[in-house]
Amino acid sequence: MTKQRVVVLGGGYAGMTAALRLAPYARVTLVDPDDRFTERVRQHERAAGRPEVTHSRARLLHGTGVEHLAARATALDADARTVRTDSGRTLGYDRLVYALGSHTDPRGAGERAFTAESPEALHKRLLDGPGRLAVVGGGLTGIEMAAEIAEAHPRWEVRLLTGGQIGGGLSTRGRAHVRTVLGRLGVRVEEGRRIADAQGVDADAVLWTAAMRAAGGLAHDAGLDTDPLSGRIRVDAALRSVSHPDVYAAGDAAAARSPRAGALRMACATALPTGAHAAGAIIAESRGAEPGPLSFGYVIQCVSLGRRDGLVQSVRADDTPRERVLTGRPAALVKEQVVRSTLRIMKLTARHPGAVRWIPGMG
Rank of each mutant, 00 (worst) to 15 (best):
E290W: 01
T38N: 13
E191F: 02
A222F: 03
D197Q: 04
A47P: 13
S243Y: 05
D77K: 03
A146L: 05
V187C: 01
C302N: 15
I300Y: 13
A75M: 04
V6A: 08
E52L: 15
L239K: 09
P273Y: 02
L333V: 13
A99T: 04
E151Y: 00
M212W: 15
R89G: 07
A222I: 01
E190A: 09
A19R: 12
A109E: 10
A215L: 07
A18I: 06
G361L: 07
A75F: 02
P228Y: 05
D34A: 15
T320D: 09
L100V: 11
S295M: 13
A263F: 15
W208G: 04
Q199H: 09
E290S: 14
T90M: 10
D79P: 00
L185M: 01
L182E: 00
G11E: 05
G306E: 13
A332D: 07
I195F: 03
S102Y: 05
T162H: 11
V315S: 11
V325D: 13
G297N: 13
A261Q: 14
A109W: 00
V136G: 05
A317W: 03
A47W: 07
R240H: 02
T141S: 15
Y13M: 04
T90G: 12
D319T: 06
E39S: 15
G275E: 01
V339W: 03
A279F: 03
R42F: 14
R84M: 08
A278Y: 10
E285N: 03
A176F: 01
V7C: 10
A238P: 03
A78G: 11
T115L: 06
E290H: 09
V53G: 08
R322L: 13
Q301F: 14
G192W: 05
R357H: 15
L122V: 07
A198V: 02
